[in-house]
Nucleic acid binder design. Structure first.
Length: 570
RNA sequence: CGGGGCAUGGCGCAGUCUGGUAGCGCAUCUGCUUUGGGAGCAGAGGGUCGCAGGUUCGAAUCCUGCUGCCCCGACCA
């Protein structure tokens, strides 16, 4: 493509609304333009990448044996009333009526429509299992759309729904999707993890999120350096320390600690490591009263784990300062498990402490040399904390790292929720009507593009992973208006590379070199060839990969061969 | 939904407090010069100042209402 004939406009300045890198770069590079809150136009240029992502998804879904369909964006309310979600779904569901006052929704997802289709079309277990997918525009009236296309209201999603005669078949279908997703994101050149997720309200036995790793991600995930264990931080189990608790050596002593209310202050004041301190949090109990949760000083409470404990109120609520005073006799900052009347639950690591430091339940006082079993009863033990980097993996292999991720895909075993509600059944081998088991599998297609940028950029612009780059090569002729030699060489190269099937953007604008370089870097095209008088004199072109620090020479008479050796196979 | 903020040419902003000719940078167009890291000079085009009322001789500016958008907290692809 010749730049001067292409509807592409870049921006030097960033629109004020753009908060995160991918949003800024997508606007500056001209991939998207905003129409309304959370609603964007994809430009001709932006579509190049979007279509590549879609193509990879299609190929892998087809390879996995799924069948593409295209369902309507507009759906009748009756289906949603039948599934029960008309009432369950909140204001995120965009509802409207047509001229005949009939109620409709704009689909945020398509379980109802596909279930309706399948119950009409399939009659026999012989037609199963089957998986239908589509790539289609969805609408969710998000409370707070933000970050451009990352959390838009209108977005493109690949959603797939599989149907099975029994749970074993569902598990197989689910596993096939897991494999397909892994192939897709690998092919897109993204660094990602399949993460165990809380199957949550939807229910079902299994659920995994596919998270693209990026520092700006909204989700924290823990993953092992050995094997493929990965889980949401809330879900990752913190194992008990491998070593048994050390024997008590120190004597229980009372220490004056005026105005020392935090672990940080305590470690300084008494010159003890945080890992030798116990912090005691009082939370509301399930049936009134309070419960003491004891953690090591260097650990954080995991609210999801805590509120799952039978004695603890769910959702988790911290006890009020008054309740803390009433239960412990001290204000927050001096609470400790010694002599507490309320139930005490210790994190596995805290329970393994010996000779530890904790609050003495009296103002300006702590205990040192505290030991479970000797100075206070052995506590109830539970997993209460967030895992931290370096913890052993719950899989038993390797140690954990913590990273941030962007959720780009989610696969679920739904079970029979929709087939029961909507009476979606076939006849089984015995001729009995049987409701089907369902799986559902989503990918945020538009979000994938944003996530790819979040993961792959520098301060100059985007750095596209090659498989989803809008162009493979950018040709930058220097001083094209003056030098006929440069122009002719660039034209010839452009024709040659294009004929060879390479996607080339020729920057044939009469612009200064600096402006062209800056734009090429902003657009993030992986391979750059510079044509200039300087090089031509020496029979050379100049090549540089978008990630490379420096340029290298490229032979003028074999640019094609030179490039082919560097382009990713398609 | 609760809290805060913004709305002035395509983009980024000043002007609003203290009413009086609508301005700056970038971008765009023309000409000349320039050409290896976002050029210089000269000129040009482009704005119902979010919308509707009101106050006033006069409103971007003051008052009222509305709308749109952005940012901070509970979900999701």
């Amino acid at each position: 493509m010749r730049w001067t004939r292409y509807p592409l406009s870049t921006m030097k300045e960033t629109p004020a609304e753009a908060e995160i890198v991918s949003h800024r770069l997508m606007l500056r590079a001209g991939l998207i333009r905003r129409l309304a809150a959370g609603i964007y136009t994809w430009t001709t240029f932006g579509l190049l990448t979007l279509r590549k992502v879609e193509a990879i998804i299609r190929e892998e879904m087809d390879r996995a044996g799924a069948f593409e369909v295209l369902m309507p964006a507009v759906q009748p309310a009756e289906l949603w009333q039948e599934s029960g979600r008309w009432a369950e779904y909140g204001p995120e569901l965009l509802r409207f009526t047509d001229r005949g006052e009939r109620a409709f929704v704009i689909g945020p997802t398509h379980e109802e429509v596909i279930t309706d289709l399948v119950r009409r079309e399939l009659q026999s277990y012989r037609q199963l299992p089957v998986n239908f997918y589509q790539i289609q525009t969805k609408f969710r009236d998000e409370v707070r759309p933000r970050f451009g296309v990352m959390r838009g209201r209108e977005f493109i999603m690949k959603d797939a729904y599989s149907f099975h005669i029994d749970e074993a078949s569902l598990a197989e279908g689910y596993e096939q999707m897991r494999v397909a997703y892994t192939r897709m994101f690998t092919r897109m050149g993204l660094t990602f993890r399949a993460v165990r997720a809380d199957s949550g309200a939807i229910g079902g036995s299994a659920s995994e999120e596919f998270q693209v790793l990026a520092d700006s991600g909204e989700d924290a995930i823990a993953f092992s350096d050995v094997g493929d264990y990965a889980a949401n931080l809330e879900m990752a189990e913190a194992l008990a320390p491998a070593a048994p608790r050390a024997p008590a050596r120190a004597a229980l002593q009372r220490a004056e600690t005026p105005n020392v209310r935090t672990i940080a202050a305590l470690t300084k004041f008494l010159a003890v490591p945080a890992a030798q301190c116990a912090k005691t949090l009082l939370v509301e109990g399930a049936s009134g009263g309070v419960v003491a949760l004891v953690l090591r000083g260097d650990h954080e409470l995991n609210a999801v784990k805590a509120q799952k404990l039978p004695g603890v109120a769910s959702p988790l609520r911290m006890a009020s300062p008054d309740a803390v005073l009433a239960a412990s006799g001290a204000e927050p900052g001096y609470v400790g498990p010694v002599g507490l009347a309320c139930p005490v639950i210790a994190d596995r690591s805290a329970a393994a402490l010996a000779d530890f430091v904790c609050g003495a339940n009296a103002r300006d006082t702590h205990f040192t040399g505290v030991n479970w079993g000797r100075d206070l009863p052995e506590p109830e033990v539970a997993d209460l904390r967030n895992v931290v980097a370096g913890d052993p993996s719950p899989s038993g292999q390797g140690t954990l790292s913590i990273a941030r991720g962007i959720e780009v895909g989610h696969i679920f075993q739904l079970g029979r929720k929709y087939s029961d509600a909507m009476n979606c059944a076939v006849l089984d081998e015995a001729g009995r009507s049987t409701n089907l088991y369902m799986g559902c599998y989503g990918i945020g297609v538009t979000r994938v593009v944003a996530a790819a940028i979040e993961q792959n950029h520098d301060d100059r612009g985007i750095i596209w992973p090659e498989p989803i780059a809008p162009f493979q090569v950018v040709l930058v002729p220097i001083n094209i208006a003056r030098s006929q030699r440069v122009r002719e060489t660039a034209d010839r190269l452009y024709d040659e590379l294009t004929r060879a099937g390479i996607e080339v953007l020729l920057d044939d604008r009469d612009a200064r070199p600096g402006a062209k370089f800056a734009d090429a870097e902003l657009l993030g095209i992986p391979h750059r060839i510079v044509v200039g008088e300087r090089g031509l004199d020496a029979g050379k072109l100049e090549y540089r990969h978008r990630r490379a620090e420096a340029s290298e020479d490229c032979p003028l008479d074999d640019a094609l061969g030179f490039l082919r050796a560097r382009l990713a196979p398609r």
